[in-house]
Design a protein around this nucleic acid. Structure first.
Lengths: 360, 360
DNA sequence: TTTCGAATTTAAAACGTTTTAGCAAAAGTT
DNA sequence: AACTTTTGCTAAAACGTTTTAAATTCGAAA
């Protein structure tokens, strides 16, 4: 198998910015090059796509002198391959689709950043969109991405998207799942060990000798969220806290600010000593409310954040938190997707748990 | 002119998820539909693309009964149009390209989010990439986006990208610029009134009666940055501060943490009373250092942030800041791009200044 | 009936690639 | 000299659409 990044990509880069850049009014095609160089269009295509096969041979035989000539003409005319035509012919678009719940959330922003870099290195570009945790929007995004001919999906699914994702696989487009899992969906899923991560978060507060610890979470039942709640409950039980004493406050995803304004005062009023959060967004909203109430963070009340965020280090002492190794998650996800695209592995359920990073 | 969103998009949505979803092994084409419905492929295409023209007539006349039949078959076979073929034929991809310096920066994340939503509403999808302020990477991104057939660019250019962008226009792809301006580049540029915004930021501190005010900025000479520095200088001069007393600390874009660690202590050591920041990232890095040094924000030293950030509200009293109305910027940028694509306006230099929002 | 337009429908040519099959010439091999 | 093999190249089909120009059908008017 030859490398699948055609050499024309590199030619493209250099020739596109050739100083002899012409007017570029009409789009130059291989036909123009063929005419100018006095060869057939097939030969031009050969030159553009030539690559070294596994056995060390070139895929297409073409005379060195001719090759030079074609390349020279291509440069001079400022040739740029038409990707639509290539996609149509080859069925490969070199485009991947990324769907997260909200690209403006730092956590997903970081994920996008990491994946984008990896993709770019491999000659892929990325379509992205935010689902807003709406299965309907998710569905529409999937559809439009498929129409664009994406070769693979990396998604953070929301509830109610199993069917859609199943369809994606049916049309033969591979898919890798991030952040949330679903045993019934046959895909690699790279997820945090949410239970363990939240147990570590609680542990941090327990080690300080705190007793009255509560959790702030979301109403959405994504597995990442439910896993973290499970971790909280299990660790609290282990500590001998009765189930009635184990308190989880669940806030709606789309309106955390105003619900935080309600919940935080009641928590403070009850004399809670520590709070753990299911996500960075929840932590941030709560910190805002706490400090506006004049409560001193890490003095009057101890917090443990989740995910990574600049915010945690803005206080002194810094707010401990359990973060996700985003680079690891992304490189793993990407390599699975690439193997799926290259048909090196089968599309099948494979849950990979990643340990949280404790920052204390 | 008819609406350019073909009705098949909506058909697509509903039929793709039809409960009679077949195995979907092979991709269904209009040829299959034509065969099944006993009509020509042209007719199928007519049905799929039919739309009401400005004069109230349908673009293509097709018999009602036939139309029904074709639609029924399309639904049954689970037809999904092949976008590569359509792009190849029409030269329209319904894909836009967004290039920012770093998608994981909240500011650009928000921009991406806003633009994505607008684009989606209009039937576009978005490719995105981060330039890391590197002209070379920017160039490569532009090239790969062009190869993918994007219909338009929205970019936050970095220095050294004028030539590349000029090329983009040369191949006839429209472009809108965000956040930074360049009078020599013929494109709509939606930029903050950086001078005015920074003057407002300084004003906030002056009103408190502070005298010793310094600025933390970047070494990069993007116009957004230089504009803000200009605003700082002009307002300080107006206050009667001598040029030698006007201090701006410039940190490298790619390594603000360690340089902050050096600069902040020296600022504090000199007894500076207030600091204004050129960006949110700079503010955040500095706050982190300050609080680790035990300096009390808004007590021992007053800060004024730039851009929007969750972080500013985490303190009490909140850190005042001058933010950018991202929604306004994005909707303006998007509407310019759309008009350019639709050839309703010419690609020409047009700088639109947006006022900063003061949060004090 | 014949004829004329309007209403439907179709054939066929693009769009720019990639790739298969095969041809001609050159170079080895007996 | 008569073969095989290798080298260098080309013609042509295919990918799935859209769109133009033309063909067909169908009523209705003559």
């Amino acid at each position: 198998m030859g490398r699948d990044v055609p050499s024309l990509f590199f030619i493209g880069i250099s020739l596109f910015f050739s100083q002899f850049c012409l007017a570029m009014s009409k789009n130059v095609t291989i036909k123009d090059i063929a005419a100018e160089a006095g060869v057939s269009i097939a030969l031009v295509s050969f030159v553009m796509n030539n690559r070294v096969e596994a056995d060390g041979k070139m895929k297409y035989r073409v005379n060195d002198a001719t090759r030079e000539r074609v390349i020279e003409v291509a440069k001079r005319l400022n040739y740029m391959p038409n990707s639509a035509a290539r996609i149509l012919r080859k069925g490969k678009s070199k485009v991947l689709g990324l769907i997260v719940s909200d690209i403006s959330n730092v956590f997903y922003g970081e994920i996008a950043r990491n994946l984008e870099t990896l993709a770019f290195e491999q000659g892929y570009t990325m379509l992205f969109a935010s689902s807003d945790e709406s299965p309907e929007k998710f569905r529409q995004i999937v559809l439009s991405f498929l129409e664009k001919g994406v070769e693979g999906f990396i998604v953070v699914p929301c509830t109610g998207t199993l069917k859609v994702l199943q369809q994606v696989l049916n049309v033969g487009v591979p898919c890798v799942v991030l952040d949330r899992k679903n045993e019934r969906f046959p895909a690699p899923m790279i997820v945090l060990d949410n239970v363990g991560a939240m147990r570590s978060a609680v542990e941090i507060l327990l080690k300080k000798g705190l007793k009255k610890i509560e959790m702030i979470s979301y109403t959405i039942r994504a597995t990442s969220i439910t896993g973290r709640e499970e971790g909280f409950i299990s660790r609290m039980r282990e500590q001998g806290i009765s189930d009635e004493q184990i308190r989880i406050h669940r806030l709606p995803f789309d309106d955390i600010d105003s619900s935080t304004d309600l919940v935080i005062p009641s928590i403070v009023g009850r004399g809670v000593e520590g709070i753990v959060f299911a996500t960075n967004a929840l932590a941030i909203a709560s910190i805002r409310k706490l400090s506006s109430m004049g409560v001193r963070i890490q003095k009057d009340i101890y917090l443990v954040g989740f995910d990574n965020s600049d915010v945690y280090d803005l206080f002194y002492p810094p707010i401990p938190h359990v973060g996700q190794p985003i680079d690891k998650i992304c490189s793993l996800a990407f390599s699975y997707l690439q193997k799926l695209i290259d048909k090196e592995i089968e599309q099948t359920t494979k849950i990979v748990y990643i340990s949280g990073e404790v920052f204390d």
